[in-house]
């Protein structure tokens, strides 16, 4: 559905501030995938996401949506931006209208829909993020941090996008708020078949939610594959300052101390890890009897 072909991006080329932020990055994201885009600050991941809907134009290379270059003449950028919704970091800072409902209407309004359609879409979007009628007439500033963020996501959903790109949607939230937001994103993915790209620097988040992981480092795509497979590169991931989920680290420490575990165990979740560790001990017990 979305394809990056040899994308390069250079900030302020041919000036003393020239910075090569993205270097020859290629990947394809299929409809309905849940992808985590990982990397620490300065890895190029934020520059990369601004390419998803044409906010930045590649210095070279191209970005394709359903096979067509998004910068070609026959493509309407307005349409691309409603099909590929980006939720930026701290999206609640972008709430500006006098009521929650009007704020969520802003996207559909820009798409040129009638007032009735705007409201219909806004209400549906608010329902899907768990904000009921009682929120419609509230000022966005009366909401709690987690609610504001959900309202901001509704603003993007109201455009009925095919893909949702979220830049660190859990930043600054407490554990409860984080679980709520990520649970909501998973629900949207499962129930609506939305394509999700989750930008994060939390390995645990990626392990819990994503099917596939793309790792960026110094502007280059370093790893790209199924979540479980990418996290087997524990040493390299640690070297580039990202690390691996805690449970994966425990298994690699145990292996280094001579304990052998079968292939295919679930190292990514606490429940799976506990099960594998239990089986391992009980197996030893059985062996001795």
């Amino acid at each position: 559905m979305i394809e990056f072909r040899n994308v390069d991006y250079i900030y302020e080329p041919e000036t003393p501030y020239e910075m090569h932020a993205v270097k020859n990055v290629s990947f394809t994201i299929e409809a309905g995938e849940f992808v985590a885009l990982l990397g620490h600050t300065g890895s190029g991941k934020s520059t990369l996401i601004e390419h998803f809907n044409g906010l930045l134009k590649p210095s070279s290379g191209s970005v394709l949506f359903h096979g067509t270059d998004i910068f070609s003449k026959e493509v309407s950028m307005k349409e691309i931006r409603s099909k590929i919704g980006i939720v930026f970091q701290y999206p609640e800072h972008q709430l500006f209208e006098s009521t929650v409902l009007r704020d969520v209407c802003f996207g559909p309004k820009n798409m040129g829909l009638s007032e009735a359609e705007q409201k219909e879409r806004a209400k549906a979007a608010l329902t899907s993020v768990g904000l009921d009628e009682s929120y419609y007439e509230m000022s966005p500033f009366e909401l709690s941090g987690g609610e504001k963020r959900r309202a901001a996501i509704a603003g993007v959903l109201a455009m009925e996008p095919e893909a949702l790109i979220l830049d660190e949607p859990s930043a600054g939230l407490d554990p409860r708020g984080r679980d709520e937001i990520l649970g909501l994103i998973r629900k949207l993915w499962q129930e609506r078949g939305l394509t999700v790209v989750l930008v994060s620097h939390s390995m645990d988040e990626a392990a819990r939610y994503a099917q596939r992981v793309i790792v960026m480092h110094e502007g280059v795509k370093k790893f790209d594959g199924p979540t479980r497979e990418v996290f087997t590169h524990a040493q390299e991931l640690t070297e580039i300052g990202l690390g691996v989920p805690s449970t994966v680290r425990i298994f690699s420490m145990l292996r280094a101390r001579g304990e052998a575990f079968p292939e295919g165990i679930d190292e990514l979740s606490v429940e799976g890890a506990a099960q594998a560790l239990l089986t391992h001990v009980l197996h030893k017990e059985g062996g001795h009897v």
């Binding site: 645990d204 805690s246 425990i250 429940e271 560790l277």
Partner: peptide, 11 residues
């Protein structure tokens, strides 16, 4: 809780 603590608790 820390993952190691949680894992020990589950076990």
């Amino acid at each position: 809780v820390p993952v190691a603590t949680q894992l020990a608790y589950e076990l």
